[in-house]
């Protein structure tokens, strides 16, 4: 069945089409064109109306605001995100390891979020950084925490009349940071497991600790409850707290396939990061 396809020339037009027909936005195409592919030489068969929003200039660009937050418009590609000089480490790392070069030139951050795959590369570091997503409709806009917006595997809180227009990363400070994506190859790999973490140490006190696990459950796991176990303590008090933290994190994740592998590896990565950070090395990125 051939459904309608729209090619709006402005965001306003796109929002009207979205409201009237519920057309699904196609940004880079790298998820949708594959998901609904019909075969060699055949146009993909979409079960819903589609609008190609790739060319909407209003949804392009990355900027840093006066308060230090970073605004990434929804059509920004992983290549642009990876090349951005003021992009936070975790997001830059994830963007630069997505797929391979051609994919990084056409996929978009809005699409990666909207697709809401638990293996998606960008939501994981964005959730670590408490990123917000701006959803726009013909009637207005709302801003929600990305961690709340993604509800489960392939499930988001996006309304039928809304489009993801912008991602906002609040300012972040850390003493040490960690990012790891585990895939079968260096390029073109879908994450088997991923982890982002950061720790901030002020005068010997852990003032912030965060982690985010990708591909370890139906959505990215951020256990604030577990994080609290380590926060507010002096670094010389942390070591005996590590087992309780790791157990709490292990209870928060829920990998559906190869759970022993994913649980063990997650534990080892977290333990590695915390232990290395407590040694207070010179460089802020922990490998």
């Amino acid at each position: 069945m051939v459904e309608r396809c729209f090619v709006p020339s402005s965001l306003r037009e796109a929002l009207e089409i979205r409201k009237e027909y519920g057309a699904h936005p196609l940004a880079g195409g790298s998820d949708l064109m594959v998901q609904y592919k019909a075969g060699l030489g055949i146009t993909p068969d979409f079960p819903f109306p589609v609008m190609i929003i790739t060319k909407l200039e209003e949804l392009k660009g990355i900027s840093r605001k006066e308060d230090g937050s970073i605004e990434i418009m929804a059509l920004s590609t992983p290549s642009e995100i990876a090349a951005c000089p003021f992009m936070p480490f975790h997001v830059k790392s994830a963007a630069s390891r997505m797929g391979a070069i051609a994919l990084r030139n056409s996929a978009t951050i809005g699409g990666n979020i909207g697709n809401a795959s638990p293996k998606g590369d960008l939501p994981q570091p964005l959730i670590l950084l408490d990123a917000l997503v701006v959803l726009t409709s013909a009637d207005g806009e709302r801003t929600v925490l990305l961690d709340d917006f993604i509800r489960g595997s392939k499930k988001t809180d996006l309304r039928d009349d809304e489009i993801i227009t912008k991602i906002i990363i609040p300012p972040v400070e850390y003493t040490y940071a960690y990012y790891r994506k585990i895939g079968t190859r260096k390029a073109n790999a879908i994450s088997k497991l991923s982890l982002s973490a950061l720790i901030k140490i002020d005068d010997g006190l852990v003032s912030d600790f965060r982690a985010a696990s990708g591909a370890a459950g139906p959505k990215v796991i951020r256990s604030r409850e577990s994080e609290e176990i380590l926060k507010g303590h002096r670094i010389d008090e942390i070591e005996p707290l590590i087992p309780a933290f790791l157990e709490s994190w292990n209870n928060a994740i829920s990998p559906h396939a190869m759970p022993e592998y994913r649980r063990n590896t997650t534990k080892r990565m977290l333990e590695h990061f915390i232990t290395e950070a407590l040694a207070m090395p010179e460089c802020e990125i922990i490998d």
């Binding site: 396809c5 790739t54 051609a102």
Partner: peptide
Amino acid sequence: KLTTSCIIPVGAVAG
């Protein structure tokens, strides 16, 4: 820029 032409609709390359 390098692009894989099998997963991009022609409507996305206008201009």
